[in-house]
């Protein structure tokens, strides 16, 4: 079947403007945009790249039709800046695990010593001892911890030689905790086909394809043999939202969960499955405490692995 229909003129519109913002992040998601080599020229033709410091130092003032926001909120200044970005953006899209879930840096949210102590994984024992020392010192000096400030400082002491130069909030939070978000692209980093689909969808005024189902479904669509069933490899695919194209199982390893929990993820049901495939409680805590550690689903799953069995 192939046929022509009456001529339909291409709507002539002013090129929509695009801004790309960076908050606390590694730049990997912005790089995904630059990585769209074959499509970059077409993109530059269809949209007006008004603000994208990673690509050009030319800055055009807002408002912007579409803002892509990478990174999480970890400083007081950023907490104010994201509000201004929102005000200047018609559509705001968060890209990547940092912006959608707080990112790996949200592990700092866990550095509440009282809550942290009973389930600290072995690798953190030393840091915990240091944190406890620091808290004792803080308390001795009159601080009433743990408050945001002391939590952040415990980590700062571990990482930086001169922590007093660093000004940061005690938590790393997703953009949606601060302003309204129109679309979310998950992943660490995001998937370039999803990004291109989203931009094309916004340009065409159609619904972007952002599936809410599991990574397993993508495995099956592409015909990958399940590594969990056929190899006994632990895999977070059954609780993780699709979008990556199920890359990890293609390379013969389980899913890391970098796209975060799918809606209704049943992590409680996955726990015995992971234990039966050779993971320990500590492994389970660690595997959930990565890119999406601060999501309530993965946080609960990580904590659950240390509860005594009922």
């Amino acid at each position: 079947m192939s046929g022509s229909v009456a001529a339909v003129a291409k709507p002539s519109v002013v090129r929509p403007s695009l801004a790309v913002w960076k908050f606390a992040s590694c730049d990997g998601c912005q790089l995904t945009l630059l990585d769209c080599e074959d499509e970059l020229l077409a993109l530059a033709e269809t949209v007006h790249i008004a603000y994208f410091l990673e690509a050009t130092s030319t800055v055009v003032d807002g408002p912007y039709d579409v803002s892509l926001v990478e990174g999480s909120i970890t400083t007081e200044e950023d907490r104010e800046r994201i509000v201004r970005v929102r005000e200047q953006s018609r559509i705001l899209v968060t890209v990547g695990a940092c912006a959608t879930a707080g990112g790996i840096q949200a592990l700092r949210n866990l550095a509440d010593i009282e809550e942290f102590r009973p389930r600290a994984p072995r690798i953190w024992t030393e840091e915990r001892a240091r944190n406890e020392r620091a808290t004792r010192e803080d308390r001795a000096s009159g601080a009433r911890g743990p408050c945001e400030r002391t939590r952040a400082q415990e980590f700062l002491r571990v990482v930086y030689a001169r922590p007093e130069y660093v000004s940061a909030l005690g938590t790393s939070t997703p953009i949606s905790a601060h302003v309204r978000v129109d679309y979310e692209l998950r992943g660490c980093p995001i998937d370039r086909r999803q990004l291109l689909d989203l931009l094309s969808a916004l340009l065409a005024g159609r619904r972007p394809a952002i599936p809410a189902y599991s990574v397993c479904e993508e495995c099956k669509l592409r015909g990958t043999t399940c590594v969990l069933v056929a190899r006994g490899a632990p895999c977070l695919g059954p609780v993780t939202q699709a979008g990556c194209g199920a890359i990890c199982p293609v390379y013969d390893r389980g899913c890391f969960g970098c796209f975060g929990p799918m809606p209704g993820a049943n992590t409680a049901a996955l726990e015995p499955v992971l234990l039966a495939r050779g993971m320990t409680d500590v492994d389970i805590e660690r595997v959930y405490r990565t890119f999406n550690a601060a999501t309530s689903t993965f946080d609960t799953a990580a904590g659950r692995s240390h509860e005594p069995p009922q």
């Binding site: 291409k10 033709e45 269809t46 099956k220 669509l221």
Partner: peptide
């Protein structure tokens, strides 16, 4: 659709009653 808006496709994909 592609970025130019001059090419569109409609795809049929397996789905499941387990999807929300």
């Amino acid at each position: 659709t592609d970025l130019s808006g001059d090419h569109a496709e409609r795809w049929q994909t397996w789905a499941s009653c387990f999807e929300v």
